Simulated assay, not measured.
Amino acid sequence: MAAVDETGTNATTTGGPAPLDLRNIAQAPKALLHDHLDGGLRPSTVVELAADCGYDGLPAADADSLGRWFRDAADSGSLELYLETFAHTVAVMQTAEGLQRVARECAEDLAADGVVYAEVRYAPEQHLEKGLTLDEVVQHTLEGFRQGESAARAAGKQIRVGCLLTAMRHAARSREIAELAVRYRDQGVVGFDIAGKEAGFPPSRHLDAFEYMRANNAHFTIHAGEAFGLPSIHEAIAFCGTDRLGHGVRIVDDIHPGDDGTPQLGRLAAFVRDKRIPLELCPSSNVQTGAVASIAEHPFDVLARLRFRVTVNTDNRLMSDTSMSREMKALVDAFGYGWSDLERFTINALKSSFLPFDERLALIDDVVKPGYAVLLG
C-alpha cells in the first residue's frame, strides 16, 4: 500500500526497505505522547515493591502470573473496570524509593524500545498515602526520569522524558495540580491533564484549572472521547481549550458516509481536523476498554486517511501487555502501513509534543528522519 503523508500526497520508497517486523520497528525512533506511569510498571517491580512496602493485596504472587492477571483483568470491555486494576500499581508507588524506581525503569524500558521522546503522565494526588507531599511526589518522580535517561545513555540509547501531571476528574484538586504543573515546568513537567471516568465527570467541571494553565501560557491535554463520545470532545475543545485530545477516538462518530459513499465530516470532526488538534490514539487500550471492537475496526486508518493529526500511543503498557513497537506492528498488520507511514505518525507526535518548537524540530531533523532513512533503504 502506498504511504500517504499528512498533506495527502502519495509517498514512495526507494532502495531496499528493512522488513517491517518487531525487531526493526524497535530500532525505529519513536515519540510517545500518552503513557501512564502507573500503567507501565514491570510485573516483577510490582511484586518487589509490594513486599518492600507491606502491600498484601496483589492478586498473584509471581511476576509472570501477575502480568497475565493485569492483562486479562484489563481486557474487560469497560473503562470503569479497566481503571480498577490501577489500585495495585498505585498502592506500591507511595514512597520516594518506589516512585523513583518506577520512573527510572519507565525511561529505561521506553528507550530500549526505541522511544526517543516520551510524555509520561501520572496523578500526584494518588501517591500521598505514606506521607509524601505533592511537591515531593513530583520531585522524586522527576529524579527517577533523569536517572532513567542517564541509564539509557550509558546503554547507548537516547531518550528524553517530559512529565504530565494529571488531576483526577472525579476529585476536586485540579486547580492545585495545575499550579503544581506550572511550578515545575522548568524542571521537567511539560503539561497538565485530567483523567478518570468520563461519564458524569465532564471536563468543564475543571474550568478553573484550565483557565489557570492558559493564564500561565502552559500546555494541557484532556482525556476525552474515549468512553463518553462527542459531548466530551466538544467540551474539551469549546469550553476548556485543550491543546490535544487524550484518545479522542470517538470523533469518528461525527464522520458519516455521504450520498456518494465518501466520508463526510460533521462540524466537530471538521474543526478537530482543520485546527490540527492532535489525537492521542491508543489502539490496544481502546479495544480493551470497549471504545472499539478490534484493531482491524479501529478508526485510526480512517482518521489518518482523512488527514487528522493522528499519533500512536501505548496508554498502559502493563495492562495492555504492549509497547510502542507492538502498537505500530498491530497497525502495520491491520492496515498495511509502511515505514513512511510510521515515520509520519512519529513526526505527528513530535509536532504535537509540549516541547519548545526548536527542540521538536531538532528531534525530527536530527533523529527521526535519519533513523527512518536507514530503514527505508
Rank of each mutant, 00 (worst) to 15 (best):
E48H: 14
A167D: 05
A103H: 11
G8Q: 06
I277G: 09
H223E: 05
R153Y: 10
D72P: 00
D135N: 12
G57F: 03
L306I: 11
D72R: 14
R214F: 08
A334F: 02
V368W: 06
L49F: 02
E119M: 10
A28M: 11
L41E: 10
L306R: 12
P202H: 03
I177R: 07
P43M: 04
R146P: 08
D301F: 10
F271G: 09
D274S: 13
F308M: 09
E105F: 04
S285P: 07
V190Y: 12
H223L: 08
H256I: 08
G57Y: 02
R250G: 05
V292F: 14
A171D: 15
V182Y: 09
L20Y: 08
A50D: 02
D253W: 13
A154G: 14
D5F: 01
S320I: 14
L331Y: 10
A215G: 15
W69V: 05
P257I: 00
L361I: 01
A73L: 04
G15A: 06
M328A: 14
E125C: 13
A349V: 07
M319T: 14
L128T: 03
A61E: 15
A26M: 10
L279G: 07
L128F: 08
E48F: 01
M319G: 12
F86G: 08
L361Q: 15
F86A: 12
A107H: 05
M168Q: 12
C163A: 15
L245C: 04
H247S: 12
D254N: 12
T141E: 03
R160C: 01
A296G: 13
E149T: 10
S294R: 07
L49I: 07
A118W: 04
L20V: 09
E105A: 07
E143P: 01
R68K: 04
L180W: 06
L128N: 08
E119A: 13
A63I: 09
P17R: 09
D333K: 03
A74V: 07
H247C: 04
M93A: 11
G144K: 00
D38R: 03
L350V: 15
H206C: 07
L265F: 10
A172G: 07
G225A: 11
